[in-house]
Design a protein around this nucleic acid. Structure first.
Lengths: 195, 195
DNA sequence: GTCTATATTTGGATAGAC
DNA sequence: GTCTATCCAAATATAGAC
């Protein structure tokens, strides 16, 4: 079953994606979570900053898992990465360009105002980089190049989210996908042409 | 001379970069601009939204000009792009990772809350794309590819800003630079090897 | 038209009934 | 330990003296 705490975490994550950290109010959160106001301070005694930190970490894990799942389900890493970008573009369109990355907006907002929150976003990005690098390395890309590719993928994905939300088109995501696939292809070992 | 209105615009632009749109208060703006509180509503009768729109447009133009200036001063477009990325990394380090793109944070924040502001950010990004595409086309890159390259450059630059601010390193910007140069190099016509 | 004092709303957070 | 009523500070915006 879904606990009150989970509803609060999920509501906060959703609101952060659309309105950011400072743009999301505590009252707005409990309203969306259909929870009484006191619950938020019962489960998160240190208030908004603690809630924000937990949401950042949880969202970071969820999206890393999503990446892993999509890539694991694909026949090869190239197709997996393509599916990931295609999925991101699809979510943007279906949500009327509201739902992008749950970390990016908060990361930019809190980088100069809250050291605990900044660290939480840094940890998330580092874990994403490690996960991507491991995947690419497993596919045969040399270690140092694998890390660079992962950083490049995350950077262009996040940048594309910004451009797509602003322009309300998926053009940037499509471009990001094509360029990332090209970079990855040239970094992979020569394909064994079966049949 | 620098008018009161200019001081307000400059102060707002600087604060937006660090704290975002919702994170920047009107009182904070006049304090930094060393202007009386009333001036802000004298020059911007429609309040924060009007001020925000003007700041977005002005910052957008300034950064487009900066790109043009740097590329124009370089011996070739490859060196120009490299100088641009190097400069971005330098500003990040010198400002202790506070000063990144003045548009990105606001763009993510307002995309779902203010249609006038969202449009302003979209206009800025479109003008950047056009400027970059024109530069690349002038250097011999085919038209449609020139636009894609410009989008890719802006996306990876913005994404790198996010990663750099969060991790307080310039690693992502360095990676972004290297990959962008590689993409651009392979899109340029064959270099005439002089001497 | 420059500036100060204030109105009004909303923010995060708390106290205490049950 | 769940929930409501309230507190205090800060937000944007305005009124009106000068």
């Amino acid at each position: 079953m879904e606990t009150t705490k989970d509803r609060i975490l999920n509501a906060t994550a959703e609101l952060f994606r659309r309105y950011g950290y400072t743009g999301t109010g505590m009252k707005q959160i409990v309203a969306q979570a259909e929870a009484p106001f006191g619950s938020i301070y019962h489960f998160f005694p240190d208030g908004k900053e603690q809630l924000g930190r937990d949401v950042i970490r949880r969202s970071g894990e969820m999206y890393r898992d999503l990446f892993e799942t999509i890539v694991a389900a694909a026949p090869d890493v190239l197709t997996g990465v393509q599916d990931f970008f295609t999925g991101a573009a699809e979510v943007l369109r279906q949500s009327d360009y509201a739902d992008a990355c749950p970390i990016a907006t908060v990361a930019l907002e809190v980088a100069s105002t809250s050291e605990p929150l900044r660290e939480a976003t840094a940890d998330v990005f580092e874990s994403w980089i490690a996960a991507g690098a491991a995947r690419f390395a497993a596919a045969g890309v040399p270690r140092s190049q694998a890390r660079e590719l992962a950083i490049q993928l995350i950077a262009v994905l996040e940048g594309a989210f910004i451009l797509c939300r602003a322009t309300r088109t998926t053009e940037a995501m499509d471009v990001a996908c094509a360029h990332t696939l090209a970079s990855l292809r040239s970094a992979l070992p020569a394909i064994s042409t079966t049949a």
